[in-house]
């Protein structure tokens, strides 16, 4: 038992412990994201820089926090930039986003993401429950959007593939690994789970609330509400299962359904 072996005074690790090597990388991403949001670049270039900077920056921060090397984190940024550039060339280029989850699956399979809550044994049962929860939230979104804004369901491969590819390869992974795997876990080690979840969920929601690429205030409010619900749901799933996999499943199902929504 720990208390029978170790002295009473424990110095907690600094909140940004493990960041020293990746500090330049993360600061660079933040700067690039700012440039992309400033409308000084051509739209396609701004999109490439924005995806690589924002999602790449969050993923790089989470990965270095979890003990992955700066090179490994840099690869993720490069892959995201490449995928977004391919999308600009052709809608099927969105499939290139799938390389990022494959790369992360490889890292997780090798046990290099266990500190972030991704690793063997895989909780498939909990992942199925997460997927069901994500589906329930998506159903609610369908109901509200259709009754309120008159949205319907429409599948357009040319629109769906790059959008869902972006969600799968960048949006979901960066959100889960950074806000749950890194921020929530670090806060939880210091505070009670409720407080840690509230702060981490607020941070995740804030990202959508200030996202300059979300078109209208209504969408922004809606996005913030559902992202807050998804953040709380995934945080609870993380605490219950001890893994990010159920949260990833919930977010994947939710965003897949979300991308099927279309006005009119």
């Amino acid at each position: 038992m720990w208390a029978l072996r170790h002295p009473g005074h424990v110095v907690p690790l600094p909140f940004v412990a493990g960041w020293s090597d990746a500090r330049a990388l993360v600061i660079g991403c933040a700067a690039a994201g700012t440039v992309a949001a400033a409308n000084v670049l051509p739209p396609d270039v701004a999109a490439v820089v924005g995806v690589a900077a924002v999602h790449g920056g969050l993923l790089a921060a989470a990965l270095t926090w979890g003990g992955v090397t700066t090179t490994g984190a840099g690869i993720v940024i490069a892959l995201l930039a490449l995928a977004r550039a391919l999308v600009a060339l052709h809608p099927l280029g969105g499939l290139a986003y799938l390389v990022v989850p494959l790369w992360l699956a490889f890292l997780a399979g090798a046990g290099r993401l266990s500190r972030l809550g991704l690793g063997r044994p895989w909780p498939w049962d909990a992942a199925a429950i997460g997927a069901l929860a994500g589906a329930a939230l998506a159903l609610h979104l369908f109901t509200c959007a259709s009754r309120t804004l008159g949205y319907g369901i429409r599948f357009d491969a040319a629109a769906f593939i790059p959008a869902f590819g972006y969600d799968l390869g960048a949006n979901i992974l960066s959100g889960e690994l950074f806000f749950r795997g890194a921020v929530l876990q670090h806060l939880w080690r210091r505070w009670s789970f409720g407080v840690a979840l509230a702060v981490a969920s607020a941070a995740a929601t804030l990202r959508y609330a200030i996202d300059p690429f979300v078109a209208t205030p209504e969408l922004r409010i809606g996005a913030a509400v559902y992202m807050a619900l998804l953040a709380v749901l995934n945080g609870a799933l993380y605490r219950w299962s001890g893994s990010l996999l159920p949260g990833l499943a919930a977010a994947t199902v939710f965003f897949a359904c979300y991308r099927l929504l279309a006005a009119g």
Partner: peptide, 8 residues
């Protein structure tokens, strides 16, 4: 002690 730091 808030966390032993020994577990995931």
């Amino acid at each position: 002690v808030a966390d032993t730091g020994e577990h995931p």
